[in-house]
Every structure is written in C-alpha cells, then in structure tokens.
Measured scan of single mutants.
Amino acid sequence: MAAGGDHGSPDSYRSPLASRYASPEMCFVFSDRYKFRTWRQLWLWLAEAEQTLGLPITDEQIQEMKSNLENIDFKMAAEEEKRLRHDVMAHVHTFGHCCPKAAGIIHLGATSCYVGDNTDLIILRNALDLLLPKLARVISRLADFAKERASLPTLGFTHFQPAQLTTVGKRCCLWIQDLCMDLQNLKRVRDDLRFRGVKGTTGTQASFLQLFEGDDHKVEQLDKMVTEKAGFKRAFIITGQTYTRKVDIEVLSVLASLGASVHKICTDIRLLANLKEMEEPFEKQQIGSSAMPYKRNPMRSERCCSLARHLMTLVMDPLQTASVQWFERTLDDSANRRICLAEAFLTADTILNTLQNISEGLVVYPKVIERRIRQELPFMATENIIMAMVKAGGSRQDCHEKIRVLSQQAASVVKQEGGDNDLIERIQVDAYFSPIHSQLDHLLDPSSFTGRASQQVQRFLEEEVYPLLKPYESVMKVKAELCL
C-alpha cells in the first residue's frame, strides 16, 4: 500500500493539533497551500530580480507567473513527485505547466533550498508574528487579574506546605514575570531571523556568478533584492546548502521555554482548584465526569500541561538535527523538520489560546482563602504575639514557653481530632496574655502579614508589564474561544 493518505478522510490519521486544537490561522501558515504558494512567490521574486539585473526574462513571463501564483494543481504535483521522487522539481514542473512561456526560467540558477529553506524562514517569521500578540493578550488578562487582587491576602506555599502570606495578585505576578520573559525572547528570536537568500547549491553562489558572467556586484544585488522582497532586513552571508540548523534550535528553545512557563502556571491553577481557592472557567453544560456528576475538573489547565510537556520535548529534535548536518548538509534534517517545526508552533498556539481562555474567566473564592488563612495564621502570628507581650512588660522566655504549650495543644486538636485551630481562643482565655487581649485582632490582621506584596504588584505592572504590552494595544480586544 502506498504511503500517505487522504487526510480529510475519517479513515486516515490526522494530527489532533490540526484537527482538534490549533487555530485556523496557525494551521494555514503550515498548510501545503501556504507552503507551495510561497515557493511560487519566491520563484517570481527571483525572476523579477534577475530581470532587473539584466537576464533575458520578459515582462510577459513575469506576468504569467504572477497570474498563476494561486493556480496550484495539487493532484498534478503529487503525481509528479511520485514520478520524480523530488518535491521541488515536482512543483517546478507543475508551475511550468500553467506558465508555459515562463517554464524555462522558473528556478533559474537556484537549488531546492532556495524555495525550501527560504519558505521555512518566512513561515517561522509569520508563525512567530501570530504567537506574539496571543502571548501579549494572556499577559494582559493576567495583569488585569493581578491588579484587581493585588491586596487580597492568601496563604503562600513553599514545598506545598503553608508559608508566609502573600497576595493573590502577587502570586499571579510570578506567572506574568515568566511570560514577559517569554514574550521578550519570542520577539528577540523573531527579529534575529535572517533570510537564507540566493546562495546556490553549497552556499557559494557559483551558479549565479556564472549567470551574471562573473559580476560579483550583481550577485550581491540579486541576494539583497530577493531578501528585501521577502520582507527581511538581512540575509546570511555564510550558508551551506541550507541555512544553519542552529536557527531551528533557537526558535524551538524559546517555544519550549514558553511551554515550561505555561505548565507551571496551569499546575498552580490545578492545585488551587483542589484547594477550592480558584477555578478555571466551567461552562453551564460542561460535564466533569461521566460517573461523578459533582466533579469540576480543571480540564483546560490539564490540557495545557499535557501539550506543554510535548512542546518542551520537541527542542531535542533540532538539537540532534543540527549535530548531524555533515559538511554542507545531509538530508537527516528533512523529514524531522517537516514534523517538529509545525508541531512546535501548533502546540504553542494551542496552549496560548487555551491559557487566554482560562485567564479571561478565572474565578476566585475569597471566603475559602480566608478560612485557610484562619487555619494557619495563628501559628504564624506567634512571633508577633511574643513581641507584643514583651512590649507590655512580659518575659520573652516565659511567653515563648506559654505559646509553645498552647500551640501544641491547638495542633493536637487540628491533627488528632480534625478540629479547627483554636490557638487564639486559648490565648484569649489565658490570664497571662490579658495585657494584649485587646491587640489580638490587630495582630491577626492578614494584611499585616503580606509585606509589600501589593506595592510590588503595582510597581511591576507599571514599570515592566504595561510598557512591554504597549506595541500590542491594537490587538488586545480579541477574545479566545474554545470549541473543545
């Protein structure tokens, strides 16, 4: 049975990233139509530049190519590739079939990587351009969430054990800070992308030097003109047959890092959902379990974690691919890159769409948070109580021993009897502590235990987050809708 299948058929496997999760716009960027249309555009740009620099290419040939950029006979191309065992030459023939007058000058002087690699770089750039505003929107939604809850005390956790208090907004800023680093890295790697350009079979530009009869300047002009037509500021000066596969490492490393950030955020949300302090959106008709109707599973956060793990592992592909590119190139890269580049971007696209949807509907339960604080705060307040007693004339050592005994009794009630923490009640009825009984409410005010959390939130948002989001103001209103 021949390899390949009808990918629109229910009898043929289709990647869930495309069929179930990723956005239509990201799927289109990695589609065959987008790819092969870009090949034709690159052939047109090459012909236009070659004509401008004096090669015998007519206006009629150029116009014929322009008129057929979208006229792609995919069936013919597939048949040609089956016959020739070469995808680029299959599309040269297919393009030439609908451009008979231009057929002889299509791909003039070029090698397969002229269309293959340059198209990949265009796709990487455009895919990054799709991700950047999506990530900015996630940051914006979380920034709104953090600002609104900047002063809401909550129990902090280290080692997932109760620690000092923080605020809900401050905790959210930990998430935002990681995503801001990801946004900066995505922008950097996007701006650092260079075009492969017009380089020939081993990167020496020998074929173009021959076409222009040894004119170095025209060869350099050709490279520059096509690079500018493709919208790049610069091209690699040095290439082998391909652009260095280190570029793929750079791009997928940034995406993998984004995956790590999203995994951490969504894990926190899942843990908070278990504590009943916070939940992701839950639709009115949504079913959490087929057997347990009360369940409210954090399905979206779980999906993000599941896909983020996949995204983090994909960076190993370009690392290994770059390491086995012998001399000017081997074909070890080809099949692998067809999979890992598309999957990385479709996965990143999915987790950003999902995280935006989550961040637009996060639900906080202040009463649950308050109750958990009441359970733990008495123990945390013991040092403040000791200091207040010393100020009232008591002995630190005597007070410490009193607190120690009462704390152990209260802990026994919590752990052995399943009761509430009654340390404060014990202190309130103990005559030894009568000098500070009137101060206990103040000493137990949760806001006095959150330090500068709310001020940190305000400063972080104003100095770091809002300036970073400013270039994306025009796209901030787009909502994230999930079908599944």
Results as ranks from 00 to 15, higher is better:
31 S>Y: 02
337 R>N: 03
70 E>H: 14
474 S>A: 14
31 S>V: 03
67 S>T: 12
429 V>F: 15
274 N>W: 06
85 R>P: 00
397 Q>L: 07
158 T>Y: 01
329 R>K: 05
431 A>R: 12
192 D>A: 15
288 G>E: 03
368 V>I: 03
378 P>D: 02
241 Q>W: 00
207 S>K: 01
349 D>R: 03
284 K>W: 13
201 T>H: 00
426 R>G: 04
385 I>F: 12
54 G>D: 12
64 E>P: 00
315 V>N: 09
70 E>V: 13
391 K>G: 14
105 I>S: 14
207 S>F: 05
39 W>I: 07
183 L>N: 04
88 V>I: 15
280 E>R: 04
78 A>I: 08
466 Y>M: 15
162 P>G: 04
39 W>V: 09
410 A>L: 06
408 Q>L: 08
234 R>V: 09
68 N>S: 09
230 A>Q: 01
62 I>L: 13
306 S>N: 02
105 I>G: 07
373 I>M: 08
399 C>K: 04
174 L>C: 11
329 R>D: 01
83 R>K: 10
213 E>R: 14
51 Q>A: 10
9 S>W: 15
3 A>F: 12
238 I>P: 01
475 V>D: 10
444 L>A: 03
158 T>F: 00
20 R>L: 03
442 H>V: 15
200 G>N: 03
105 I>R: 10
137 R>N: 14
257 S>Q: 10
51 Q>S: 09
129 D>E: 10
69 L>R: 08
364 V>M: 08
154 T>P: 03
448 S>T: 11
170 K>Q: 04
52 T>S: 12
376 E>A: 04
175 W>I: 06
310 H>R: 13
438 S>H: 10
86 H>C: 03
267 T>K: 04
258 L>V: 14
254 V>I: 11
207 S>T: 14
381 A>F: 12
27 C>G: 12
301 S>F: 02
439 Q>D: 14
63 Q>N: 14
32 D>P: 14
424 I>A: 15
475 V>T: 12
205 Q>T: 09
145 F>Y: 07
314 L>N: 08
229 K>D: 01
275 L>F: 06
131 L>Q: 11
152 L>G: 01
125 R>Y: 02
185 N>A: 14
162 P>V: 05
307 L>T: 15
285 Q>I: 14
117 D>L: 00
460 F>N: 01
66 K>F: 12
422 D>P: 10
157 F>H: 09
318 P>Q: 02
260 A>R: 03
313 T>R: 04
344 A>W: 04
281 P>K: 03
154 T>A: 12
397 Q>S: 07
316 M>G: 09
377 L>G: 05
58 T>H: 13
6 D>A: 12
422 D>V: 00
4 G>N: 15
8 G>E: 15
